[in-house]
Design a binder for these strands. Structure first.
Length: 514
RNA sequence: GGCCCGUUCGUCUAGCGGUUAGGACACCGCCCUCUCAAGGCGGAGAUCACGGGUUCGAAUCCCGUACGGGCUACCA
């Protein structure tokens, strides 16, 4: 078979030919979903799953559905739901159906879909594809342990499956507590499906037991609920985490019992921490919003995550949202787990920061200046040109936006404090005092106080002073910026202005060695 | 225990029977240079987890082993 999953160009003939075989995943209008559980913030791994679903939908001109799996009342909160929505928006992952935007297949909160689970169960009962089970949980547990001790399969032993249907119906009618289990066909055989990222995956027939669909309290179990949701939402491709791979055969059996078309599954490997262990709190930031708060640009996070487990060609490292959507395919998704490399994210973020225009950088800089108490939106608006001159200077030197304050602080504070290290290593060197005096002298006479003039003036200093340029410039730098490492000197001085530069030169003088 | 998935430079990956195993981050060196960056050039770094096959030929196909992970619930 030459037609591979994700290959868009196919003929009508191919379509009809493979409609029944499921080997033609792009046969219908693509509908994918991202189904987070609002039990916490949007996790890095979840974000990547969302990105792949989004990209897959966009690539095929399909529909990207957002469904909130809020059926765990203990841990689900509305605040978490809002945070997830916020994170998706921040990443620029727009969805076509879901909370807030609606759609024909709603509602998009699992807690509002109970009715469809009931209906599905009715259909199953009508087909004799589900049966009530009266076994007590404790009893089940004991039998499971016993069977596992013997070294074999530990699933349900099908005790209640053999109860006469009429008798069972009577017990149910009498109000005896029971769950509803799937009646897995006797002759079903091994379950094989073509995973879009892993290829054929086969589970032996006896690997799946008569799983519980509906609990004693009448609520649907996870596997039942997702399957019904995906079926009723006409999801064609289920792209999700690796941890659901073993759930897939169960879900396939439910689709079959219902007579619903089985979607194409694609299982993504997990993202690991730097120690190769599952990414967790111990590894620091794991939520998307934490990365936002650390000053990462959404396009960088998106780019990094897109490449963590997928590649365009093995060469391309910088790619836009559009390029991703254009080129994304499941067959180029890697099937092995990936370690999250914060250093590479940092580098990528730096790339995106440098790509920003001066104006764009200023816009993004505002919240960080405000957070540091250096300037507010009003200051920026009133001195827009000044900030735009500053922008490229800092953009070239930071990897994350939260580094801004540290780099530009000296431009906003008067007086400044000079670091101890700078005093010792620079100002206490011979010639420092003379350098400051000379610099103050020439700069005070300067009329046009721009970077070029400042540079020309200062460059004339070392020779008559018989000092190395570095000695002179470093002394001035420390006096003006407070540190031995700073933004470019001449530009910094120009930005600071004569009135604020001169006093700094004088103030630093007391520390300086002649 | 059973079942399933995974294993290419430190990291992310390219590779889909024949390549000097390519790229990116990180690292090292040089250049540029007022510091720091950025940028340019170059370097080091992978016995393709291991062991068997198949083949003229295997990182690529098959089998096993080891290690890692997932599932095995009336959690999701």
């Amino acid at each position: 078979m030459s037609v591979r999953p994700g290959t868009p160009e196919r003929t009508l003939n191919d379509l009809t030919l493979h409609l029944t075989s499921r080997s033609s995943p792009v046969a219908e209008h693509v509908r994918v979903r991202f189904a987070p559980s609002p039990t916490g913030h949007l996790h890095i791994g979840g974000a990547r799953t969302a990105i792949y679903n989004w990209a897959f939908a966009r690539h095929h001109g399909g529909t990207f559905v957002l469904r909130i799996e809020d059926t765990d009342p203990e841990r689900s909160t509305e605040e978490n739901t809002r945070a997830i929505l916020r994170a998706l928006e921040w990443l620029g992952l727009d969805y076509d159906e879901g909370p807030g935007v609606g759609g024909e297949y709603g509602p998009y909160f699992q807690t509002q879909r109970f009715e469809s689970y009931t209906k599905a169960l009715e259909r199953l009962k009508a087909n004799a594809a589900a049966y009530p089970c009266f076994c007590a949980p404790t009893e089940l547990e004991a039998r499971r342990e016993a069977s596992r001790a013997k070294g074999g399969f530990a699933g349900y032993d099908r005790t209640c499956r053999s109860i006469d249907p009429d008798v069972a119906a009577g017990r149910v009618a009498a109000g005896e507590p029971h769950v509803w289990r799937l009646k897995v066909p006797e002759n079903r055989g091994a379950i094989t499906f073509a995973d879009a990222v892993r290829g054929d995956v086969t589970f032996p027939a006896d690997a799946v037991d008569d799983l519980v669909l509906v609990r004693t309290d009448g609520t649907a179990t996870y596997n039942f609920a997702v399957t019904i949701d995906d079926a009723t939402m006409a999801i064609t491709h289920v792209i999700r985490g690796d941890d659901h791979l073993s759930n897939t055969p169960k879900q396939i059996l439910i689709y079959e019992a219902l007579g619903e078309p089985i979607p194409v599954f694609g299982h993504l490997s997990m993202i690991l921490g730097s120690d190769g262990k599952r990414l967790s709190k111990r590894h620091g930031a794991t939520s998307v919003e934490a990365y936002r708060d650390h000053g990462y640009l959404p396009e960088a996070v998106m780019n990094y995550l897109a490449l963590l487990g997928w590649s365009l060609d093995g060469e391309t490292t910088i790619l836009s949202r559009e390029t991703l959507a254009e080129n994304f395919s499941l067959d180029r998704v890697s099937s092995n787990p990936a370690i999250f490399d914060e250093e590479k994210l940092d580098w990528l973020d730096g790339v995106y920061i440098r790509e920003l225009s001066a104006s764009g950088f200023v816009d993004r800089m505002v919240p960080w200046l405000e957070a540091a108490g250096l300037a507010d939106a009003g200051d920026v608006a009133s001195r827009r040109e000044w900030f735009e001159e500053l922008a490229p200077l800092v953009a070239e030197r930071i990897k994350r936006m939260d580094e801004i304050a540290g780099v530009v602080g000296f431009l906003f504070k008067d007086p400044i404090t000079i670091t101890q290290e700078a005093k010792e290593k620079v100002l206490m060197r011979e010639g420092a005092a003379r350098s400051l005096e000379a610099a103050a002298d020439v700069l005070s006479q300067l009329e046009t106080f721009d970077a070029a003039s400042v540079e020309a003036t200062l460059r004339s200093l070392p020779e008559p002073l018989k000092l190395k340029p570095k000695v002179v410039f470093q002394a001035v730098r420390v006096a003006v910026t407070g540190a031995a490492v700073s933004l470019p000197l001449f530009e910094s001085i120009a930005l600071l202005g004569k009135a604020r530069t001169l006093p700094r030169l004088h103030d630093a003088h007391i520390w300086a060695t002649p």
